[in-house]
Each structure stands twice: as C-alpha cells, then as structure tokens.
C-alpha cells in the first residue's frame, strides 16, 4: 500500500483496516500524532488529509485517499507554521500531549475560516480534549494566528 505523508511516499505492508494513526506512529515513525482514545473522542491523533483535519485513530489506512500531513509536516522547530508561532507566543502547552492535535485542528479551521469568532472556535475545537485545560490560551492563540495570517 502506498501512502503520501508530508510530501514523502511510503510503501507499507499492513492490514488494510489498521488505523492510519498506528501506521504513522509504529510503521513510519511519525510520532507527532498521538494516541489518546482510539475512538475519535479526544482529537490527539488529528492529522490533515488533503488539508482537512481528520482523526487518524479511526481512519483505516486502506481508506486514505489523499495526502497526509502530520504536525511534523506543518512546521519544524526552525521553520514554524504561523499557528505554531502563535502557540509559542501565548505559551499554550502544559503537558503538551494534545497540542499537535489541537494545532492541526486549528490550522484546518483557519484555512476554512480565516476570521473565526469565539463561537466558531468552540464548534471547531470542541472535539479536541486538553486535560491540562489550556483552552483560554488556545483560543487566544487562534485569534493571534488569524490576525497574523491576515497581515501575511
């Protein structure tokens, strides 16, 4: 089976019903997407399929029909995506485990809706759980990223 992840093509030999998350983590060593629940209830595993936020823990690898982007493909420590820069500016992360998923969800939201209201943020982000409850700073960082994207 062929999989395009962060612009690279990988050949994988796994069961077709294996969730994309575990293919990424255990077969291809992309450990940015996290395992949280396995039932699409927490969002820690969020990646983009053709730019759209998707829960990789319930998406069977055989059903992937687009390019996969993980947090590692969004930006790097040296070249951060605007959303990641906003997360740093607001010092969002505490334990940090959910943040790759939060950031992938937020960047997908901003692609679809460059000026989200607080209600838009509530709707888009409420599938992403954060047990450290960093929500106030996530909200602030999304607004900052939106403003920066508008300038850019």
């Amino acid at each position: 089976m062929r999989l395009n992840v962060n612009g690279q093509t990988h050949e994988v030999d796994v069961q077709e019903d294996m969730p994309l998350l575990w293919v990424l983590r255990d077969e291809l060593n992309y450990t940015g997407p996290k395992f949280g629940c396995g039932i699409a209830m927490c969002g820690a595993c969020t990646v983009h399929i053709d730019g759209v936020a998707t829960r990789s823990c319930t998406l069977q690898v055989g059903d992937v029909d687009g390019e996969v982007t993980t947090i590692e493909g969004l930006g790097t420590p040296d070249v951060q995506h605007i959303v990641q820069q906003a997360w740093v500016e607001h010092q969002v992360a505490q334990c940090g485990y959910c943040q790759p998923g939060q950031i992938m969800q937020a960047s997908s939201l901003l692609d679809a809706n460059p000026e989200p209201t607080d209600d838009d943020i509530d709707v888009a982000m409420s599938g992403n759980l954060c047990r450290c409850a960093t929500y106030p700073r996530i909200r602030a960082a999304i607004h900052t990223a939106a403003a920066k994207m508008k300038e850019a």
């Binding site: 940015g32 996290k34 993980t70 590692e72 997360w87 740093v88 969002v92 992360a93």
Partner: peptide, 29 residues
C-alpha cells in the same frame, strides 16, 4: 519574570519525546 517554557517549541512541533514515543531498534510493541 515569566520565562518562555523550555519545552514549548518541541511540544508545538510534535518533536517533544513522551514515553509513548520511545523508539528503539528492533523494538516490539
């Protein structure tokens, strides 16, 4: 004074190592 957290950049770029991210040669799961 408020300091930028030393773990922040790695945590927002998916590069921070958590226990569950441990990878070793010839590892099983």
């Amino acid at each position: 004074k408020s300091q930028p957290r030393v773990d922040m950049v790695s945590k927002v770029t998916g590069t921070a190592p958590f226990g569950v991210d441990t990878q070793l040669d010839d590892m099983l799961y």
